[in-house]
């Protein structure tokens, strides 16, 4: 079942997970981190994945981010089966399709903002002039136009996370995957970051938040709750309903519309 938007269009499916499981061997025991999760995420959704620790939330995030492959089940990313991809193929998917935002920012400490944001473009093999230009552009978009040559230790926590968000955006990914993005920030700065995500969502980006804080998850339009490796609830699961696409997103993603 799929929902048809008012304009008669369905936003395309980005993530299509069917019954995936993930088992870890921990000493003698086998831990079933995911016991059969199915999830569909469409373009321009704003989704929060919630759950207590041990719920399989992190494991699911690693799957979604193509950092890990499932033990069983099927995972299609934009129509491509990633469940059996090699390490290097997964690296290419992560590079082009996924923008990561980490709780601890994970910036390179000795590189300035520009160089940090450039990094995904380096791995994409883009020449240095284009890289510089695009990185500077994205940094200006997140409001750091005057912090291009600052190193992480010269920036506030909120600014660091903005650099990280710029880094996630620079390759124009299909999804932004944010793991507790406000976990290391005070509430005021956290709010600023959430406003930034809201803006990105309004401009047509697909955002997946992984969090255990209800008021952060509240910013999302859809919340998926995990417990013991299974989906406990999914308030937006209308069979993978897309949110109404904004006009600029339509032009970018749905050529048939033109």
């Amino acid at each position: 079942m799929s929902l048809v938007t008012t304009s008669g269009l369905v936003s395309p499916l980005v993530i299509d997970i069917e019954n995936i499981t993930k088992d870890y061997v921990m000493g003698e025991e086998i831990v079933h981190a995911l016991r059969g999760v199915s999830l569909q995420i469409r373009s321009n959704e704003y989704l929060a994945i919630m759950g207590p620790s041990g719920s399989g939330k992190s494991t699911l995030m690693n799957m979604l981010g193509c950092l890990d492959t499932p033990s069983s089940g099927r995972y299609e990313f934009s129509g491509r089966d990633v469940s059996a991809m090699s390490d290097d193929e997964l690296a290419a998917i992560r590079n082009r399709e996924i923008g990561f935002v980490f709780q601890t920012f994970n910036l390179l400490p000795r590189a300035d903002s520009l160089r940090n944001v450039e990094l995904p473009l380096v791995y994409a093999g883009i020449d240095s002039d284009t890289r510089r230009e695009r990185a500077a552009h994205v940094l200006r978009e997140v409001g750091l136009g005057d912090r291009l040559h600052h190193k992480p230790n010269e920036l506030s926590g909120g600014q660091r996370q903005r650099v990280a968000i710029a880094r996630a955006l620079v390759n124009d990914p299909s999804i932004i995957l944010a793991d507790e993005p406000t976990g290391n920030l005070d509430s005021k700065t956290g709010d600023e970051i959430m406003t930034l995500f809201e803006n990105l969502y309004q401009r047509g980006h697909t955002i997946i938040l992984v969090t255990h804080e209800a008021d952060i998850a509240h910013h999302a339009r859809r919340t998926v709750r995990l417990r013991d490796g299974l989906i406990e609830s999914d308030d937006g699961d209308l069979g993978g309903v897309g949110i109404l696409p904004t006009p600029d997103r339509l032009e970018a993603d749905v050529p048939a519309y033109r």
Binding site: G65, D88, A91, P120, Y123
Partner: peptide, 11 residues
């Protein structure tokens, strides 16, 4: 780990 997440290959 970060570099790999951002798309660095093994090589």
């Amino acid at each position: 780990g970060t570099r790999k997440a951002l798309g660095a290959r093994r090589r």
